[in-house]
Design a protein around this nucleic acid. Sequence first.
DNA 1: ACTACCTTTGACCACCTGGTTAAACCAAAT
DNA 2: ATTTGGTTTAACCAGGTGGTCAAAGGTAGT
Lengths: 205, 205
Amino acid sequence: MENPVKTTEERILEAAKRVFHAKGYDGARMQEIADEAGVNKSLVHYYYRNKDNIFQAVFEDAFAQLIAALNEIFISERTFPSKIETFISYYVTFLSKNPYLPLFILNGLYEKPEQIKTMFEKIHLSPDHLMQQIHLQVKEELNLDIDPFHIFINILALSIFPVVARPLIQTIFGFSNEQIGQFYEERKTVVPEFILNALKGYEKR
Amino acid sequence: MENPVKTTEERILEAAKRVFHAKGYDGARMQEIADEAGVNKSLVHYYYRNKDNIFQAVFEDAFAQLIAALNEIFISERTFPSKIETFISYYVTFLSKNPYLPLFILNGLYEKPEQIKTMFEKIHLSPDHLMQQIHLQVKEELNLDIDPFHIFINILALSIFPVVARPLIQTIFGFSNEQIGQFYEERKTVVPEFILNALKGYEKR
DNA sequence: ACTACCTTTGACCACCTGGTTAAACCAAAT
DNA sequence: ATTTGGTTTAACCAGGTGGTCAAAGGTAGT
């Protein structure tokens, strides 16, 4: 840590993250962000002009965090099974530390889907390139008889959904925080195993 | 249809569903619900007293719709593979007709997780019984070496997530409405196949 | 001491929000 | 025709909302 002392602007942004992540755009209050940052409400407007602006900053940050790892791992030089394992393990850990993030993102996307593409350019990330990589590996490395796109979506679904649905799982089945932690821990091995087992069924002989 | 003429109360509830599903609790406006129903705002209060009340009515209805099918199918007399197929097919169809529902539910659960259990009782539904059924089938009918709970969550994840993430998928990969419809259609066969392929890997020999 | 510039604050405002109320409406019963 | 009861409306209100603004504070250069 070079500069542990946060600037006011950073403190406001972090406060905004906490508030927006937990309450969403409509539920968040500028006053609450200010309180959370320990500053006057006008100061929030001073640095970010209006609610839309600061929300966008928060959203882009969250989106970048979620997407960056995905891209990095799937573009790397590993074998496909290794990528899946690395990805799931990383995502489950990351998401259970930031449980609000995925739902926050999904909600944001319903409201302003247009901005996604420009956001991808900002992060220097190409969906086509990513899919092309996955396609290559599924078709040429493993020679599987299945649409790579469905595999990709399945990987995301199995990693993300259980985190998003945490309150559902926890209340319905009465899991304690420890138990749900244990459950997520298990998924790091269960999910890659599940996916690789499934892929075996698609092997062309 | 015995009585195609809707009462005012029903029209208000349906308007409220549309508004709440699309905008969530905080984003919804009592005025908008009234407009959508074509009535005066006071009428909404006349029938439902306050915003919390009408939201709860909408939420319970949505939750019941989503849970009912799940329970019905998994308690039925089919074989496990048939259940999976039936469930996925039904869910994908139902959800793509009601794309806002799952995200609406997930958001609601973050805000008021306590009410879930009472809601289960209202619908006469026992999570324990459901899990017990799945446990029996996975362990005794198929004799698989995997925790049934993870399978259950995987089934939900693979059915629900792609619908929730529709805006993400559609914008990132530039799918038209037709293409995404085609994609969901494919999933009705791809997902059961994927799951059953995976389960084969867990067969005890 | 003065200036110049960025930062921070309290007071304020126009507008919107959920909610209330009293009066009007209207169909059925008397 | 009048009463009665549920239904529907317009007008209104208190509190909260995002946002503005002028002034005060603070800091570095002169």
